[in-house]
Simulated scan of single mutants.
Amino acid sequence: MKKKIIGITVLVLLLGGGGTAGAFYYNDLSKYITTEDAKIQGDLRAIGSLSAGKLIEWRYKEGDSFNKGDVLGIVETVPARGTTPATTVEITAPDAGTVIQSNAVEDQTVSPGAALALSADLSQLYITANLQETEITDVHVGSKVTIKVDAFKNTTFTGHVDRIGLGTNSSFSLIASSNTTGNFTKVIQRVPVRITLDDYQNKRLIPGLNATIKIEKK
């Protein structure tokens, strides 16, 4: 009899716990939109020379920051005629940023428009989250967002929805998909949503980090 009472008690506790967990899950689902399909991003800018020639000087390595107008490198142009003296052209920073990738090697030959480095303004990072098309009606510009970044599991970031995409990810594909078999399977589309971070919580955030976001429904 005693064992039977203990068994019933355990069952009640399990059912009660399951009910509580179910209620919590439903409450969370009804108030928030959550996805792990999110990454930290920044506006990348390719840096190169406007003139062909030889890169005689490159002043910045990966991780170095610069201001708008700073001279990043110098190119010695190839004279069109043998009697014409060589001239130099400065490679200047179009905006403030940080070098996140550099392929520049001094004394290499460069072509106009070829990227010598990639930069990003690490103080202006944001998050791109891809939401299901069925969730978009519950998202609005200004909606509050809670963010977890995989690299900093014990830190909670906050932000807000800044922009909602005007097309699905598949609509931007360069190759349009076509159905040649006659069979059709509906696929849920994803819409990109841009999220602005309120602050970095003193963490070193960089483009490409995975994140999980939770958007408050309105």
Rank of each mutant, 00 (worst) to 15 (best):
G19F: 09
A104F: 10
Y26W: 12
T87V: 12
E36F: 04
T128L: 08
V149H: 04
N27D: 08
S178C: 03
V110Y: 02
I127N: 04
A38K: 02
V149M: 08
F172C: 00
K186A: 15
I188G: 10
Q108E: 14
A46N: 15
F66C: 01
T77D: 11
G42E: 04
T196D: 03
K186R: 15
K54R: 09
G22N: 11
A52Q: 13
G142V: 00
T158E: 15
E90A: 11
I6R: 01
A115W: 07
T146P: 00
I164E: 06
I40D: 08
D199I: 02
V10L: 08
K153T: 13
L131H: 03
T20L: 15
P79C: 12
Q124R: 11
S111V: 05
I206Q: 10
G82K: 15
A93F: 06
I127Y: 02
T77W: 11
G167Q: 14
T185N: 14
V78A: 11
I91N: 03
L15C: 12
A93W: 09
T168N: 10
D28L: 10
T156P: 03
T137Q: 14
I100E: 08
I206G: 01
G73P: 01
T88N: 10
D28I: 01
V145N: 01
V187T: 15
S65Y: 00
P192I: 06
A129S: 03
R190K: 15
L11H: 02
A21T: 02
T109H: 02
N210K: 14
I100G: 06
V141I: 12
D28R: 13
T88R: 13
K153G: 08
L166A: 09
K144A: 10
L209K: 06
I100N: 06
F184N: 07
N179F: 06
F184S: 05
G48D: 05
P79Y: 13
P85D: 13
Q108H: 04
P94E: 04
G97I: 05
A21S: 04
T185C: 02
T35Y: 09
A104E: 07
I195Q: 03
G69Q: 03
L44F: 13
I175V: 15
T185L: 11
S51L: 09
E90D: 10
V10R: 00
R190S: 13
F24S: 10
V161I: 11
I195P: 01
Q189W: 14
S123E: 12
T34C: 02
Q124Y: 00
M1R: 00
K68R: 12
V78W: 08
G7F: 01
L14A: 14
I164T: 06
E90F: 02
I175K: 14
K214D: 03
L205A: 07
G69F: 03
K218P: 05
S171M: 10
